[in-house]
């Protein structure tokens, strides 16, 4: 498998406990040659600290509990504050369409909904 050389941290924020989607996407990206760091549930601050430490290109947040409108803007704000906003954030999971626009307005690169083909996610990241 060709190495894309891109690194991505995939994690869930707060107490959100449903890991199925995160693991599926992490494995698919791994198979596609991405270097994947799979983090356990973290606070927004820990997400940013891990992302910086691991020198990733992307942070992929899986959200099923609905906490994304609170946690994701906080992650983006912390990235900016630490001048690490070259790290881009993508979100996947159960994100209602109204929330999707809000997240994009906050600076999220892309939002992937339920039932998303993993190849679409891979193609999207590869094209960046």
């Amino acid at each position: 498998m060709a190495k894309s050389g891109k690194r991505i941290l995939i994690t869930k924020v707060g107490m959100d406990a449903h890991w199925r989607g995160a693991i599926i996407v992490a494995k698919a990206l791994c198979d596609a040659g991405f270097e994947v760091v799979l983090g356990r549930n973290m606070s927004p601050a820990a997400v940013v600290a891990t992302a910086v430490q691991e020198a990733v290109d992307y942070i992929g947040i899986s959200s099923l509990s609905g906490n994304h409108l609170v946690t994701v803007p906080r992650i983006i704000e912390l990235l900016m504050r630490q001048q690490a906003d070259d790290i881009k954030v993508i979100v996947g999971g159960i994100v209602p369409s109204a929330d999707r626009q809000k997240l994009l307005d906050h600076g999220v690169l892309e939002v992937f909904g339920p039932g998303q083909d993993t190849r679409t996610i891979i193609e999207f990241l590869a094209s960046q």
């Binding site: 924020v13 707060g14 107490m15 959100d16 406990a17 906490n67 609170v70 946690t71």
Partner: peptide, 16 residues
């Protein structure tokens, strides 16, 4: 989620 995991509503990691 916080109740299931044994956290109070004012725990910093539970808030969201």
């Amino acid at each position: 989620y916080p109740t299931l995991r044994g956290f109070d509503s004012d725990h910093p990691d539970a808030e969201a």
